[in-house]
Every structure is written in C-alpha cells, then in structure tokens.
Computed example of a mutant assay.
Amino acid sequence: MADRIFEEPRLADVYDFFDSEERPDLDPYIAMTDEFGAKSVIDIGCGTGILACRLAALSKEVIGIDPADASLKVATRKAYADRVKWIHGTAAMLAGLQADLVTMTGNVAQVFVTDEEWMSTLRVCRDVIRPGGRLVFEVRDPSKEAWKDWNRGQSYQVIEAPEIGKVEKWVDLLDVQLPLVTFRQTFVFQRDGVVISSDSTLRFRSQSEIIDSLCVTNLPVEDIRNAPDRPGLEFVFIARCPG
C-alpha cells in the first residue's frame, strides 16, 4: 500500500508544488536515455508522472507504474500524459513487458524495506530489461545521515497552490533503527484548516549491499554516479543487463 502522501487526493494534488519546478534531479535520467540510446522506459514508482511525461514529450515509449491511484490521477492531467501507458499497481504487474531502461527516482528504491521486497523488485527489473539495457536508480548514502535534518526547523515550507490556497508542510523524525528510518510529513491547508499527516519508512542500504543485491539478480553494476541535486549525499546506480 502506498503512503498517505501519495494516496490521499488532497496531498497528491499539492505534491508537485513543494518541489522545484525545474526538478534538476530528473535531468540526469533524461540525459541517460540519450546516452544509452534508450527508446523505451519503464518508470517504477512514477508518482505524479513528471519524468514519464517529460520523456514522452521527447517521443520515448514510456510506461509509468505506481501503487498510488491519487498520484496517477494527477499524472494523467499533465501535458503529454496521453502518450504514456499508466499502470496502477506494483512492479509485479510488469511481467511480460520490456524496455531499454528502467528507472526508480527519488526515494523509490528505498521504500522496499524488506530484503524480499527489494530482491523481488530487482528480479522483475531484470526480466523486463532488454539485453544490453539498464536499470538506473538513486539512493541516499547512509553515512551522511540525512535524517538528522528531518525536523520542522529545517524542513518547513509554505506554498500557494492555485485553487487550493496556502499549504504548510514540515517533516518530523519519528524513529531511527538502522537500516530503517521513519518520519512524518504534516500538511496544513490554511483555507479550511485541515491538517493531514503521512508516515513513511525508508531503508538505508550501504553501497556494498546494493552492489551485492544487483550481482545476485544478474544486474552487474556498470557505474555509480553522483546525484547533481544532492552532491556527495546520494549514489546513482547504473546496472546493465547482460546481452
């Protein structure tokens, strides 16, 4: 089941407003489609569909899959959404499909908190990637302890959303029992005073753990790059399917 921040319609409707419009974190993924000559892309955990629609605008064949129906409804309202195949569900529903590139952006790769969930997802990726194709995803470097900044003082934001009004948001750290970190995001809709919170848990895997899991699923690591939007804080893994 998706976290409330993605599944609650009111939260899904304002999700994009709390990110930079330029979304520099997505630029490397778009550049890699050209670097690797990928004509077809599957975006796992596509959320509100920004990456999927940007790729569709470049005439890529795109599949966006996500377990949160509310987020997908936001995605389908975007420009070029009609060129994307949207799937409501988990990676297990990708059986039988194929693509040159599979992506997991943002925190997607860290929402698989059990080894079983993670390995199952990697096996699905291995099956859908064409020979010579790639899996690309990012994870936070656990040694940087990003969760230490997850508090109201350092995370508070307020935005003005069209037809919705001002919305406040902040993050509170709830629990750290590595490799799991749990936090709460709180939203206040000033127009009617409604307060909605969403709890999430992420798993922080080490670089060596991820490399080992990719090798076990026959997705050897081709490269590990820096994330330009969080330099020195994240790893961008590129694994290549043999062929």
Score class of each variant (00 low, 15 high):
residue 234 E to I: 00
residue 146 A to W: 14
residue 91 A to H: 06
residue 226 N to K: 13
residue 235 F to E: 12
residue 51 L to C: 08
residue 57 A to P: 03
residue 105 T to F: 00
residue 25 D to R: 07
residue 130 R to P: 03
residue 53 C to F: 06
residue 15 Y to V: 03
residue 120 S to F: 01
residue 22 E to Q: 14
residue 154 Q to T: 13
residue 234 E to T: 10
residue 12 A to D: 08
residue 184 R to L: 04
residue 151 N to V: 03
residue 217 T to L: 07
residue 1 M to C: 12
residue 223 D to I: 07
residue 136 V to I: 15
residue 28 P to E: 13
residue 194 V to K: 15
residue 157 Q to H: 13
residue 48 T to K: 03
residue 117 E to R: 05
residue 172 D to F: 00
residue 115 D to C: 03
residue 134 R to L: 06
residue 22 E to R: 13
residue 143 S to P: 02
residue 49 G to V: 08
residue 75 A to T: 11
residue 79 A to E: 15
residue 76 T to C: 05
residue 188 V to I: 13
residue 58 L to A: 13
residue 153 G to Q: 10
residue 225 R to Y: 11
residue 116 E to G: 04
residue 238 I to D: 07
residue 76 T to M: 13
residue 53 C to Y: 05
residue 190 Q to D: 14
residue 152 R to G: 04
residue 233 L to P: 00
residue 225 R to I: 12
residue 140 R to M: 10
residue 76 T to F: 00
residue 222 E to K: 13
residue 63 I to W: 00
residue 215 C to P: 01
residue 20 S to L: 10
residue 181 V to P: 00
residue 51 L to A: 05
residue 89 G to T: 13
residue 235 F to V: 11
residue 184 R to F: 05
residue 238 I to R: 04
residue 182 T to N: 02
residue 8 E to M: 04
residue 47 G to H: 02
residue 97 L to P: 06
residue 45 G to D: 06
residue 179 P to C: 04
residue 171 V to H: 04
residue 201 T to W: 02
residue 60 K to H: 15
residue 147 W to D: 04
residue 142 P to C: 06
residue 125 C to N: 07
residue 99 A to S: 14
residue 196 I to K: 01
residue 111 V to Y: 12
residue 194 V to P: 06
residue 70 A to H: 04
residue 16 D to E: 12
residue 106 G to K: 05
residue 79 A to C: 09
residue 1 M to A: 15
residue 112 F to E: 04
